[in-house]
Amino acid sequence: MKKNILRSITAAALVAASVSGPMLSAPASAQVGGIVHDPRNYSQNILTAARTLEQINNQIKQLQNQATSLLNEARNLQSLPTSTLGELQAQIDQTKQLLTEAEGIAYDVADIRKGFEQRYKGTAFSGPTSALVANAEARWKDSVGAFEDAMKVQAGIVSNMGGTRTSISTIVGASQSATGALQAAQAGNQLLAIQSQQIADLAAVMTAQGRAEMLGAARAAAAEAEGRERFRRFRKGD
């Protein structure tokens, strides 16, 4: 409607200007019914009104652009309504709990040092035969427990895969419907958190498996040392 009004006013102005042109030689002013009519003044007023309407239209467009910009900024600041932080923390806590349940020699420097001094190093072979037997049995329990712990950690991480898959599907779905930069960034951060959790699970499996392998190797070395000690005692008749 505004465009039609503007076109009508502009056309009227052009007609008035052509009427007042030199070809028709119309008078600058005329008196009709006691009213003085000036065509030039009339056309000037029409052009002024057209320009004013055009300026108003431009201002309306600027306000519309500003409103659109504000709406976009509001979307960019809108937070993502979906979060999988609780599920990730629960999975990490489960893996951590499995690691803390290690039997025999735990994942602690002091416990490792103490356990090796008692069952795997030279002092473990200096006692009576009953002590040698007890230490050998303790070493066997360490190895069996370590392999059991590794299998528990592996089973726990496998059970986490279902929850991880659900979390990934949820975050990917939320990212596809993100309406602003903040929501997209938060979705990306949560996907990175899921990836970090998977890396932590992988590190836990490698740690548990490595612990089992090292205790098995230490048990084999201790068994060899014990065999030499038993042979020495046998030769001496102890």
Rank of each mutant, 00 (worst) to 15 (best):
K2A: 10
K2I: 09
K3Q: 14
I5L: 11
L6G: 12
A11N: 06
A12I: 06
A12F: 08
A17L: 07
A17W: 01
A17V: 05
S18F: 04
V19H: 10
V19R: 09
G21R: 02
G21P: 06
G21A: 11
P22R: 09
S25M: 09
P27I: 04
A28I: 03
V32A: 10
G34A: 04
H37V: 14
H37Y: 12
D38C: 06
R40N: 08
Q44A: 10
Q44D: 10
Q44Y: 08
Q44I: 06
I46L: 14
I46W: 08
A49I: 14
R51A: 11
R51W: 04
T52S: 12
Q55N: 12
Q55P: 03
Q59T: 15
K61S: 15
K61Q: 13
L63D: 08
L63P: 00
L63R: 11
Q64M: 12
Q64E: 15
N65E: 13
Q66T: 15
S69C: 00
N72E: 14
E73I: 12
E73R: 13
A74W: 06
N76D: 15
Q78S: 15
S79E: 09
P81G: 10
T82C: 01
T82L: 01
L85Y: 07
G86W: 02
G86S: 13
Q91W: 04
T95A: 15
K96T: 15
L98R: 05
L98W: 03
T100Y: 05
A102C: 06
I105S: 14
V109G: 08
V109K: 13
A110Y: 01
D111W: 05
I112F: 15
K114I: 04
K114G: 02
F116E: 06
F116K: 13
Q118C: 04
R119N: 09
Y120T: 07
G122N: 10
P128V: 10
T129W: 13
L132Q: 06
L132A: 12
L132T: 01
V133H: 11
E137T: 15
A138P: 01
R139T: 00
R139L: 02
W140C: 11
D149K: 12
A150H: 01
I157P: 07
M161L: 12
T164D: 05
R165K: 11
R165E: 08
R165P: 05
S167P: 02
I168P: 01
S169E: 10
S169I: 07
S169P: 02
Q176Y: 03
A178H: 03
T179R: 15
T179Y: 03
G180Y: 02
G180I: 00
A181I: 07
A181V: 07
Q183K: 07
A184W: 00
A185I: 06
Q186V: 03
Q186P: 01
A187Q: 00
A193P: 01
Q195M: 02
Q197D: 10
A200L: 09
A204V: 01
V205G: 07
M206T: 14
A208F: 03
A208L: 06
G210P: 01
E213Q: 13
M214Y: 12
A218K: 04
A218H: 04
R219C: 09
A220W: 01
A223N: 09
A223D: 12
F231K: 09
R232G: 06
R232D: 05
R233M: 03
R233S: 02
R235F: 08
R235G: 08
R235K: 12
R235Y: 05
D238I: 13
